[in-house]
Design a binder for these strands. Structure first.
Length: 248
DNA sequence: AAATTATGCAACCGCCTCCCC
DNA sequence: GGGGGAGGCGGTTGCATAATT
């Protein structure tokens, strides 16, 4: 049986994109907008798979992309988010405006992994490699804005469905919260029980009041969906939550 | 200067999830 | 509720360039 191919591979180009192909794609999307990637190549006169067009646009041609080196701040933010979310590159990218999941993934594999190893931290678990650093923080001391979430452990509920694919979360003590660009984005507007906590004023040096161990905080709203990736949220119905341990 | 090795990144592949019928 | 199509995601590959020998 097998799955049907996403496009007619016999008549599609592969490999690096030419300037002409780029230009065709850009002008088509400028004229018609994104959407229906499957039919886009034909409509735009491109001999490319729709997925390839989407990837090229999202990762390279989009006008809002921030090209160039990652800053130290971005580095640390990626590390923090990775410690919370694992290899959820799209969610991580959602918190880094102008960066793409592919770019972050590549950057992680080529730079940050090495950086963490140099710090003596396991890039996957963010724990000290030699086990001798039990009292060490999970993340570098250079990470500012990291404050303890008193008594709160976290997990990502969505990964429960992975059949153990992500074994990392249930055991990982994520005694962390991070300074977010906007506290107001911590909770879904639809989440009335949480919004009162979010509105409590805080200072950057104290644990935010929103980190109430008895409340449920939505990870996707807090970290990933700001850039229009809300499809995973659906007003947070059983998907990507921090779950206080006492509820488990 | 040439050959070899290492590195970085764009692009592809296949699976998963969502959405519509 | 189930099936199928389309989009999205993460892992991996392969090529171009840089660094080293």
């Amino acid at each position: 049986m097998g799955r049907s191919p996403c496009c007619e591979k016999a008549h599609t180009n592969k490999g690096a994109w030419t300037k002409e192909e780029d230009q065709r794609l850009i002008s088509y999307i400028k004229a018609h907008g994104e959407g229906c990637w499957r039919s886009l190549p034909k409509a735009a006169g491109l001999l490319r798979c729709g997925k390839s067009c989407r990837l090229r646009w999202i990762n390279y041609l989009r006008p809002d992309l921030k090209r160039g080196n990652f800053t130290e701040e971005e580095d640390e933010l990626i590390i923090k988010l990775h410690s919370l979310l694992g290899n959820k590159w799209s969610l991580i990218a959602g918190r880094l405006p102008g960066r793409t999941d592919n770019e972050i993934k590549n950057y992680w594999n080529t730079h940050i992994k090495r950086k963490l190893l140099n710090r003596g931290l396991d890039p996957q678990t963010h724990r000290p490699i030699n086990g001798g650093g039990e009292s060490q923080p999970l993340l570098s001391n250079a990470v500012e804005n990291v404050t303890p979430m008193h008594g709160v452990k976290a997990m990502i509920k969505a990964d429960d469905n992975n059949g153990g694919k992500n074994q990392r979360c249930p055991d990982l003590n994520l005694d962390l919260s991070i300074s977010l660009p906007s506290f107001s984005s911590w909770h879904c507007s639809a989440s009335s029980t949480s919004s009162s906590a979010a509105s409590t004023s805080t200072t950057s040096s104290s644990p935010p009041a929103m980190v109430n161990p008895n409340q449920t905080v939505c990870v996707c709203c807090s970290f990933g969906s700001g850039g229009g990736e809300g499809r995973i949220c659906s007003n947070c119905q059983g998907f990507r939550y921090f779950i206080p341990l006492q509820e488990r």
